[in-house]
Simulated scan of single mutants.
Amino acid sequence: MKTTAFVIAILASFSMPALSDDKIDRAEYCGNYSKTAIGIMEARQSGIPAIQAMEYYMEAANPDQRKIITDFILSAYARTRMMGEEGKATAITDFGDDVWVECMSEWNIPNADYQPPVARKANEP
């Protein structure tokens, strides 16, 4: 199935940082969140149902990552699915950029209690 192959390809690049890794730098940490958000929005823009994206990402995520993955999926699927390749590419890039900017602007030293920021809701400016 084409959809399953696409989700598996996304999961292969799934690389969110461990929350307990205090040696990771800010740009790398936020970049990994952005890459994950981009993969989720690629699934959204490709027409993969939200429940299927949630199942695949939850299977790959560790317990520390599940909340942020859920937040990313809810945020991505609240946004409009675009028509045309250019619109889809823009939506994907914008979503990844939103997550990166928010993470960088709300940076905190990562530790077990750190809750990373989530992508803006679709209706926020």
Rank of each mutant, 00 (worst) to 15 (best):
M1E: 09
K2T: 10
T3Y: 07
L11Y: 01
A12N: 11
A12S: 13
F14Q: 08
M16G: 03
M16L: 15
M16S: 05
A18W: 08
L19P: 04
L19D: 03
L19C: 10
S20R: 11
S20L: 05
S20W: 06
D21P: 08
D25G: 07
D25H: 06
A27D: 15
A27N: 13
E28Q: 14
E28H: 07
E28T: 15
Y29K: 02
C30F: 07
N32F: 01
N32S: 13
Y33R: 07
Y33W: 12
S34C: 07
K35P: 03
I38L: 07
M41L: 06
E42S: 13
A43K: 06
R44F: 06
Q45M: 12
Q45Y: 10
S46Q: 13
S46C: 04
I48S: 05
A50Y: 00
A53Y: 00
A53D: 00
A53Q: 02
E55R: 09
Y56P: 00
Y56G: 07
A60Y: 04
A61W: 04
P63L: 03
P63Y: 05
D64N: 09
D64Y: 05
R66S: 06
I69K: 00
T70Q: 11
Y77F: 14
A78P: 09
A78N: 14
R79S: 13
R79H: 13
M82E: 15
G84V: 14
E85T: 14
E86I: 15
G87T: 08
K88M: 13
A89N: 15
A89L: 10
A89G: 11
I92P: 10
T93W: 05
G96C: 10
W100E: 12
E102R: 13
W107N: 00
N108G: 03
N108I: 01
I109W: 05
I109H: 10
P110L: 06
N111S: 12
A112F: 06
A112I: 11
D113G: 08
Y114W: 15
Y114Q: 03
Q115N: 08
P116F: 02
P117V: 07
V118H: 03
V118R: 04
A119M: 01
K121S: 08
K121T: 04
E124K: 00
E124T: 01
P125V: 00
P125K: 00
